[in-house]
C-alpha cells in the first residue's frame, strides 16, 4: 500500500545522499587557506552521514558510506581505508542504537553524536598506534573534534529545513530494518 508511493521518494533520497557525499568531500578540499595555521575544516562527511543515518537509516546505503569513506581518504591524503573503516563502524553503531534516537530532544542527540565522534577519533588513533604509524597530536585531534561537533547543528538544520530530511514520526516508521543497497 504505502510501499508503492514510498519507492520513488526513496530513490530521490538515495540520489540526494549520493550528492551530499560528493559535496561533503568537495567542500573541505576547496583550496583556500593552504597554510598550516589556517583553520581546518570540520569533518563535514561525518556530520552529514550521522545526521542522515539518525533520520533516514533506510536510505543511507552502507556501500555508499564505504565508497565515500575510501574516496575521501584518497582525496584528503589520509591513510587509505582508515577513516573509512572508522566511519563505517561508527555508522553501524548508530544504526544499532537507532531506537535510542526515537523522540529524544536534539540536545541529547548532539551529546550522543559528540561522544561517538570522540570514540571514533580514539579508535582511529589506536589503529594508527598499533600499526606503528605516527599518531595525530592530541591538540589537533581535540580541535578537529570541537570544530566538527560545533558544525553538527548547522548540518542538521540544513537537512531539516532545506532538504526536508526529518525523523519519522512514531506511527509511520518503515517496518524493515534496512535495505541492503
Amino acid at each position: 500500500m504505502s510501499g508503492a508511493e514510498a519507492k520513488p521518494r526513496r530513490w530521490v533520497e538515495l540520489l540526494l545522499f549520493m550528492l551530499l557525499g560528493f559535496i561533503s568531500i568537495g567542500i573541505p578540499i576547496i583550496p583556500m587557506g593552504l597554510a598550516a595555521n589556517s583553520i581546518g575544516f570540520p569533518d563535514v562527511m561525518f556530520a552529514v552521514f550521522t545526521a542522515w543515518v539518525i533520520r533516514r537509516p533506510t536510505s543511507a546505503p552502507i556501500v555508499g558510506i564505504v565508497f565515500f569513506g575510501v574516496l575521501a581518504d584518497a582525496f584528503m591524503m589520509r591513510p587509505l581505508g582508515l577513516w573509512a573503516l572508522v566511519l563505517f563502524v561508527g555508522m553501524e553503531v548508530l544504526r544499532l542504537s537507532e531506537r535510542a534516537f526515537r523522540d529524544i530532544p536534539f540536545v541529547l542527540e548532539w551529546v550522543y553524536v559528540s561522544v561517538l565522534f570522540a570514540l571514533m577519533l580514539l579508535l582511529q588513533n589506536t589503529l594508527l598506534f598499533v600499526s606503528f604509524d605516527s599518531v595525530y597530536t592530541l591538540s589537533d585531534v581535540i580541535w578537529h573534534w570541537a570544530r566538527t561537533v560545533a558544525s553538527y547543528p548547522l548540518v542538521v538544520l540544513i537537512l531539516h529545513w532545506v532538504l526536508r530530511i526529518r525523523a519519522y514520526k512514531k506511527d509511520n516508521l518503515p517496518n524493515r530494518l534496512g535495505y541492503v543497497l
Partner: peptide, 20 residues
C-alpha cells in the same frame, strides 16, 4: 545485510593493512 557488513568490514581493514 549482516553478511555484507562483515564483508565490508574485512575489506576496509584489508585496505588499511595493505596501505601499511
Amino acid at each position: 545485510r549482516r553478511f555484507l557488513v562483515g564483508i565490508l568490514f574485512v575489506l576496509l581493514l584489508g585496505v588499511f593493512l595493505l596501505s601499511r
